[in-house]
Amino acid sequence: MARLIKDRVIADDQWELIREPIDADALRALSGRNVILPLSSWLELHEAQPSHQGLLGVWLKNTELPESITPWLPRIPLIALDFPVFTDGRAYSSARELRQNLGFEGELRAIGDVLCDQLFYMSRCGFNAFAMRADQDLEAAVRRFDDFKDAYQASVLNPEPLFRRRSCANG
């Protein structure tokens, strides 16, 4: 079973990521498993498959907007956001939007070109699970969450920006 980082610890991945769109038959063959579907397949299949044994999650390309799944958010257990290359930062905005504007509370997972040096920023944007690129050292990666003790901005981890906490401290 693949390993990943979830809530800052290394864990077994309980999910299967389906990269290419699939149809109802293919999904039936996966019954009993927790699967993460591409957006197009998920939109098509998630309501038509009440018989699916196991959970259904969805992954978004970085051109697909979180608004496309807004109505179902409270019932989605996992959303994965793809980083085709680590230098493409669109998914950071989607993550914050999902957490801060749309109130998504399930697992928010980074997939694709996920590298240890970006974990700090990703976690502050609301990701809590990281399916790291295969060559990354997970033990070392976990330590990266603590690279910084604090930050200036509001973030999903700490919704109060530093200036609000600072001015409290100063009375």
């Binding site: 950071y92 920023y121 944007c125 200036y152």
Partner: peptide
């Protein structure tokens, strides 16, 4: 200065 602090290590905008 307020903008400097807001923009420094802004987690969302490091890969524009």
């Amino acid at each position: 200065e307020i903008i400097r602090q807001w923009s420094t290590f802004h987690p969302e905008f490091a890969f524009l």
